[in-house]
Each structure stands twice: as structure tokens, then as C-alpha cells.
Nucleic acid binder design. Sequence first.
DNA 1: GAGCTGACATGTT
DNA 2: CAACATGCCAGCT
Length: 101
Amino acid sequence: QSFLDLRWIAYHVGMAASSRTFPERVHDVVRVIPPGKVMTYKEVAIAVGSPSAYRAVGNILGANHDPDIPCHRVIRSDGAAGGYNRGRKEKLQRLHDEGAV
DNA sequence: GAGCTGACATGTT
DNA sequence: CAACATGCCAGCT
């Protein structure tokens, strides 16, 4: 919810960010999001090093079909869940179940 | 002064 | 070349 949280992500990703492609970076960032916590597309974009690539982040998450990546924990800055590969309804359900705000 | 709508910017498929 | 699971800025109500 703040840059302090991004610091944790950035550090974690920074260790694994060895000349990787954009999708790979986003992939790693979303993967380290703890349960019950949600991240906005913008924050993820910042964590990967491209604060203005929020558009790409959403696109990549949607294009990514990896079950190891909780793309449902990535929501909009407005608080809306946005869309989901498997269905927006399921995403909201899962977020609510985890107690994420 | 606050809330909403429309236009523009980034990266990948 | 154009679209997309967004975000920010400017203008209007």
C-alpha cells in the first residue's frame, strides 16, 4: 500500500532481477505477494522498475497463465478488482476470502 | 472546492 | 498496426 512495501518487493526482485524481460520481472513480483495482501498494477510496475508500465503489467498478468502467480492479488488503485483471466467474479471472491482490502 | 469524463502514455501479443 | 485486466492529467459540472 506504500513504497515501504514496494521496498520489500524491490529488494526481493532486485536479487532475482538479473537481466530478465519485463514479463519475467512482473512475474516474480506478483509471485512474492503474501496471502491476504493485494498490490496495485502501478505498485507492481514501480517494483519492476517501470513506474509507467502499469499498462504492460496488467497485460502481462492477463497473458500469463501460471498458477504459481496469484494475479488475483493484483488490483486497481481504485480498489476495483479489474478483470481476470478466469473471471472477474472469482477474483473478487478470492480476495474477499483472504480478507484483502 | 470536489467529483466525473475524456485524452494520453508504456510494453507485449 | 491496433488492442488491453491501468494510471495520471486537464477540463467541465
